[in-house]
Every structure is written in C-alpha cells, then in structure tokens.
Design a protein around this nucleic acid. Structure first.
Lengths: 150, 150
DNA sequence: ATGATTGCAAAGACTTTGCAGTCTC
DNA sequence: GAGACTGCAAAGTCTTTGCAATCAT
C-alpha cells in the first residue's frame, strides 16, 4: 500500500529523529507530488511559498535523511542535479524512459528485471538490494514531430 | 570487434575535428585501460605523467568530444563525478554491479534487457537508443566478511 | 593561412559544513 | 533540559567558460 505520513513519522522516531515543521513540510511536498522527480531546488522553491525562512541546507539535509530512512529514492537523470521520488511499495518496480529530444521522463511499470537479478545473484554471488534502469531514446510525440518535419 | 585507434581517428576527421597530442594521449589512456571506469581526474592524473602541462579543462573538453563521437560512454555511479568507459561493440551489453560495502564495480555481461526494451517499445511507442542498468548490493567477498564477523 | 584547440584562471552549479541560536521530545 | 535541528554564510567539489596564444591540417 501507499506510504503514508504516519509510517514516515514512525520511522523517524524509531531512529531518534525529530519531526520538525520543516521536515513535515518537505514530506508533504513529496506526498502531494507523488510520481514527480523533484530536485533539491524544486523542493526549496515550493517550500519557500509556505516557509519563506527555510534554508536550502535544510532541504539537502532533509532529503538525505529521508533517503536514509528509505522514504525517498535518489535518482539521477544526468542533468547535473539529484532528483528524488517517494519510495512506495506500489512503486517499487518501474523504470524511467528519458526522452533525449524533449527531456520528458516517462515511467514504465515492469518486473522483468527480477529475472535478471536472479540470474546475476546466481552467477556472481552478488547480493542485490536495489537496481536502477534507465532507457534513453525518443518519445512517441517527438517521433511524430520528427516525421512531420521531414 | 574492438574499437581501435584508426577508427577513432577516422571519426574525428569525418566530423572536422583535429587529432592533437593531448587527444591522442587521452585516447591512449582509455585504450590502455579498457574495462576501467575513469573519472576526469583519473585521466588528468595519468595524463600529467606524460604531459605535465596539460590542463584539466582539456581533459573535460576531450571527454565530451569523445562521448559525442561515441568513443566513450559516460557513466554515473553516484559518487559525484562522471566516469567514462570505452564504448565497444563487444562491450555493448553489460551492466554494473555496485558493491555498497567496498565500492567495487563488477561487470555483468547480459542481454536480457533486449527483451525488456522490446516490451517497452511495443507498449509505449518510445524508441530506445541506449540503456543503463545498475544493481546495488553486496559483493561475494563482502558477504563473506560479514559472515566471518558475526 | 585559418579555424580548431589549448592552458590558465575565473566563474558556475550543485552540495556540504561550521556554528550559534532554536526547538522537539 | 539535552541533544537534535535550523539558518546563514562560507567552503568544497566537480565542471564549464572566456580569452589570448598555439597548433593541426
């Protein structure tokens, strides 16, 4: 089921962390933007609307903390900044399709990698905790645009 | 077959680039270190031994160029710096296993992702040019160490 | 000769850190 | 009250850029 505020609160307290208004606000931003891939600066901008005094350092520290307690997953789309998404169970097996033409990120649900993971564990003895798969190419819309131009 | 110096020279000239001693030296470093994942700074350090006057800016510019002409592939292992490897045909279908305990990178040859790519193209209309798959976990040696400690 | 390329240093972008004051538990 | 947390500004790291001098073709 979907990750909820109460779960996050529990995880924080369990590990001796505190729930401050700033953290609460940042968590809310992610819960209200499920499925998006927010950078530290995205979060900072959204946060300033309600918490104008908040510093960017707190955003970075909170993102790090939330990643540590497995609320967020850190992503990298090669644009020079880290991005984060909520780490849901529902959400566990999806990949990102990065359009090299318009930059759009498309999600693709799938668990074919499970088979690959098992093959790897069997052949190498490596124990896998997590994986990332990204596919680079051209989305359907951009292909249509290309076709129209030629 | 393996990518050779002559191929690279051809690709450079075809696109109006020049083969300078600096570029030649950087290419040589990669050809002599096939299979390694070198950062800009790695290359810079190795380069200084033979070309002490070379600037780091040239390294960055050369890496960018070599990526552009598809001699190198840019990698990211989440350690805050870009890494590069030679983009061989032989080399095309391998994944990286990142050990979260000792940091070692293990290569795994495989083409199971081909099936996944086709599924994606069929279901979404997205045209895929390239992919990256990384697996995070614990390598066999580190597992053995863990077991020995407990 | 001519435009590409280089080295240097300065600037940029993103992220981390030190510290004194503040707040949660 | 105690230790965790915050905001600010400074510093760090990796990467990019401007420019005059130099080099490959």
């Amino acid at each position: 089921m979907a990750l909820m505020l109460k779960d996050i609160y529990t995880r924080l307290l369990e590990r001796g962390h505190k729930l401050t208004p700033q953290r609460w606000a940042i968590i809310a931003i992610f819960l209200m933007n499920r499925g998006r891939h927010l950078s530290a600066d995205d979060v900072y901008s959204m946060l300033k609307e309600t918490h104008p005094n908040n510093g960017i350092a707190t955003v970075y520290r909170t993102l790090e903390l939330l990643e540590e307690i497995e609320v967020l997953k850190k992503l990298d789309f090669g644009d020079g900044r880290a991005r984060y998404e909520v780490r849901d169970e529902d959400n566990h097996h999806h990949h990102h399709l990065v359009c090299q033409s318009c930059g759009k990120i498309i999600e693709f649900e799938d668990d074919l990698l499970g088979a690959l993971e098992m093959a790897i564990e069997r052949k190498t003895g490596f124990r896998i905790n997590d994986h990332v798969a990204k596919f680079f190419g051209t989305c359907a819309e951009c292909q249509a645009k290309e076709a129209a131009q030629s």
